[in-house]
């Protein structure tokens, strides 16, 4: 059985009189330890899938199975526990708390979870040795995104969900961030799902799921994913 599986998932938003189908029977599978990329143009339904997978939104139909549990059947509270213990989230705009230092931002996440890693160790692992006690305003964009990744990893999640992690970064910095994510996947066996509109990074993934008009249009499996350094876009 696949580690993550979406089976015929529907999501409909009501905009006044019009029903907008944000997910129209989406189905795919991702295996444990895979680096998966979900690509699609704006409005293809990427974020909706991410929201449902991350337990931030509920589906209107279908099943979402993560590590053998169907999260569509979760209560509101169980869903929060799922977010808190099982999902690590990396945001496009980092979403660090400005008033907390890098270390404290990581601690904000770890202090509510059970199986956590030490904040300073994780920060060192993402390459922020020496910037541990800096405030976000004192860090560059790439560094802030590293803090955000450290915050997600420190929770020891089953799943790392990344929403356009390079969207607010320049080319080179973006690349190093993707490298960090890829390394995390390879070295720690973490299941990483990256959402992006940039199909150029597809070769680095184990699995590429392409969305179009709220439907899965193509699923490609890369048996030989390349390292991110070799990709140019």
């Amino acid at each position: 059985m696949a580690f993550v599986e979406l089976k015929d998932v529907y999501k409909t938003y009501k905009m006044g009189e019009v029903d907008i189908h944000a997910s129209d029977g989406v189905s795919f599978k991702i295996e444990k330890g895979e680096f998966a990329v979900i690509v699609g143009a704006s409005g293809a339904g990427k974020t909706t899938v991410l929201n449902m997978l991350g337990g931030m939104d509920t589906s209107d139909g279908g099943d979402i199975i993560v590590d053998g549990e169907n999260i569509t059947e979760f209560s509101k509270k169980r869903l929060i526990t799922y977010r808190r213990d099982d999902v690590g989230f990396v945001f496009q705009f980092y979403n660090l708390i400005n008033n907390l230092t890098a270390k404290e931002n990581v601690e904000l996440a770890t202090q509510i979870c059970k199986n956590t890693k030490d904040a300073e160790t994780v920060l060192r692992e993402v390459g922020l040795d020496g910037r541990i006690n800096n405030f976000p305003a004192q860090l560059s964009g790439g560094e802030q995104q590293r803090v955000s990744i450290a915050r997600a990893l420190a929770k020891n999640p089953k799943l790392l969900l990344c929403d356009e992690p390079t969207g607010a970064l320049d080319y080179n910095t973006g690349k190093t961030i993707l490298k960090l994510l890829q390394d995390t996947c390879r070295k720690q066996g973490m299941t990483v799902i990256v959402i992006t509109h940039n199909s150029a990074i597809a070769p680095m993934a184990d699995r590429v799921i392409t969305l179009k008009n709220a439907k899965v249009s193509k699923i490609t499996t890369n048996y030989n994913p390349v390292s991110v350094e070799t990709i140019e876009w």
């Binding site: 931030m56 509270k77 526990t81 999902v87 904000l108 509510i112």
Partner: peptide
């Protein structure tokens, strides 16, 4: 919203 995503209960 962020701390909600991080899994803070209501």
């Amino acid at each position: 919203a962020t701390i909600k995503v991080l899994g803070f209960y209501d």
